[in-house]
Design a protein around this nucleic acid. Structure first.
Length: 263
DNA sequence: AACACGACCTGGTAGC
DNA sequence: TGCTACCAGGTCGTGT
């Protein structure tokens, strides 16, 4: 499920709730190796970072709990560790009686405690954070011109732009009027500039939407708060030109786009 | 290098 | 109601 905006919202809510607390007990049913327990018990939490769609809970002693929510995972704090739902895959009981909980109905999420250095080396392989100054139009255009990938697959590649997923890639392509199948190399520079700008704009708005959707505790940030123009709208008329939104298959995933606007 | 596809998992929903 | 088929925000490994 979660793309960068939802993961950012998860981190912002989690950070104040768990920072400074100590993990007193870890209960693991799935999604994390049983050995994780010994690696985290007794360790204080000193921060929560995000890299792309990855959540990094920093513990004392150079240990990082690296979590990826994949399709349906959610990570949040609850007031009382005894109230963790039956759907919880991992519960870290904290020293004030609260808990950090990983839920995931599909159990595709992954959590692992590892040396921070090793985790950081892995995160360094991701592309720049699209909402940071490192994500410049010049850099984006340079990488695009080197790539023969279709635009949609390029945007989904975490080594190119960290954190874009199926929904916001489609929305950014629509906003920039870029055809998802057209090869990056063959896009004009103005189109690439527009796409770069669209990525930043879409993600900025989506972060705000995800944070708003996360206002209630335990709530899962759905992209539903974000006004999707094409994603999930197969067969509906494009709000700009009236042509019907199409759904095609790319890289095994659905891509939604407007055949009128995105040429 | 680039792409397709299956695997990993469960739950929701559309259609019959 | 019950069954089937397909869909889902992600990533990895394998094969062409």
């Amino acid at each position: 499920m979660p793309e960068l905006p939802e993961v950012e919202a998860v981190c912002r809510r989690l950070r104040p709730a768990v920072t400074g607390r100590t993990i007193v007990e870890a209960r693991i049913s799935r999604c994390a190796a049983p050995s994780t327990r010994a690696a985290v018990e007794g360790r204080p939490i000193h921060g929560v970072d995000r890299a792309g769609k990855h959540i990094l809970v920093r513990l004392d002693g150079g240990v990082t709990v690296h979590t990826h929510l994949r399709m349906s995972g959610n990570l949040f704090a609850i007031r009382d560790h005894r109230f963790a739902s039956a759907a919880a895959r991992v519960v870290f009981a904290l020293d004030d009686g609260s808990a950090m909980v990983l839920e995931d109905p599909r159990a595709l999420a992954r959590m692992e405690a590892r040396p921070s250095e090793a985790v950081d080396v892995e995160m360094a392989k991701l592309g720049p954070e699209p909402l940071s100054p490192a994500f410049t139009a010049a850099w984006f255009i340079e990488k695009a011109k080197e790539s023969r990938q279709p635009a949609k697959l390029f945007l989904m590649d975490q080594a190119r732009v960290a954190g874009l997923g199926n929904i916001y890639a489609a929305e950014a392509l629509y906003a920039a009027r870029v055809n998802p199948r057209k090869l990056m190399q063959r896009q004009s520079v103005p189109k690439l500039r527009a796409l770069h700008e669209a990525i930043v704009n879409v993600l900025t708005l989506a972060v705000q939407s995800a944070i708003a959707a996360y206002s209630r505790p335990g709530e899962f940030a759905e992209a539903g708060e974000f006004p999707c123009a094409v994603y999930g709208r197969e067969g509906e008329p494009c709000e700009a030109c009236g042509r019907r939104i199409l759904r095609i298959r790319q890289g095994g995933r659905s891509t939604y786009y407007c055949p009128g606007c995105q040429r």
